[in-house]
Design a protein around this nucleic acid. Sequence first.
DNA 1: TAACTTATGTCACCTCATGACAGATGACAA
DNA 2: TTGTCATCTGTCATGAGGTGACATAAGTTA
Lengths: 199, 199
Amino acid sequence: MGLRERKKQKTRIALIDAALDLFLTHGYDITTVDQIAAAVDVSPRTFFRYFASKEEVVLSPCHDGQEIFESELAARPADESPYQAVTGAMRTALATMRDGDPATVDRFVKVGRLMEETPSLIAAQMCLIAQGERRLAEEVARRRGTGVDDLHTQFVVSLLTTINRVLMEHGPDDLSLLLERMERILAVAERCLRPGWDR
Amino acid sequence: MGLRERKKQKTRIALIDAALDLFLTHGYDITTVDQIAAAVDVSPRTFFRYFASKEEVVLSPCHDGQEIFESELAARPADESPYQAVTGAMRTALATMRDGDPATVDRFVKVGRLMEETPSLIAAQMCLIAQGERRLAEEVARRRGTGVDDLHTQFVVSLLTTINRVLMEHGPDDLSLLLERMERILAVAERCLRPGWDR
DNA sequence: TAACTTATGTCACCTCATGACAGATGACAA
DNA sequence: TTGTCATCTGTCATGAGGTGACATAAGTTA
């Protein structure tokens, strides 16, 4: 990786960190793009070359997390049921993140705290979830051998997304706690669902 | 109701209709608030006195629909399970709307078509759903006799919201068709769920 | 009609976001 | 090292969304 690419990564990370800190100390709505850019010593125009919007800089850690999950999911054996594959991928994705770069985890936690106190960001997060849901639909449809329009498949997809949403409801202060919380949610779900509901 | 109040209702409806028509013919993003205001012969500043944002004018029919549903839900007998109460309220709400003012239905259909072709609106809709979900949580917690933080209750709530979301996935071209579609989704859900899952 | 209340228009202003262009900087070959 | 090229960045201009302040117009009530 060349110097140019490394510099780009650095300013990208710097923008994210500066933005998260400013948002958390002064509030999301009140903080301006100009302030973020000034904190990183970059022109405001440059900010928008890295992030399409003010929201995107907050959501970028979530986006990265989604990609990790999705690559884990794709690596799952083909004979697993959708539920098995998704829950397995979630477990390994969270564990990988927990044992990885602490700075990444830190950013994740900050985003979580920010979400709780900023309603306007919830919409953006929901949008991200909806996009992820569409990609998940294709994976589930493949595993169930139906089209993405199949009503049962749509139900399975929505339910899997639901589990993930309930999980993320309360921000992840600690990833180990989050993993534990996830197991409890899965236990509830399995109590409610008939065996083979996702086949 | 006095003349002043009637006038307000009229401009409100006029703004919604003008906005929906402009959005559908030219596209949501390209249409400006100034154009909407000009179409109703009102100052742009006035538009923002009726709607807090450009999104809100689109979502207002959905918001009204939510309120109808929620009042139906509140009127349900207390001994019904959350699932029974919610599905019952949905049935009556949709039927009431179908047999009510055709203009209201028309607006609803237009919003649905607009959603399909405008990704940026999906986020806003999601936010509305999230808010409705929080209110639903209190109702479900009441019926289940738990707090809103109870994990099982959260699961039930999310699942009920999920059913609603799958239902609304494809815009309501026709309310009778929508009712029919709903019954099919409920059949799928009931096949997947153990009896008494929502108790 | 007079006094009051409330909705509207006008004006000024801020933030978000984008296109265009020029200059700075890294990449790469000779 | 140097020259060339690609690309990143800053500056400037522009437009749309959104809000506060204040005066004016219109409906309400006595």
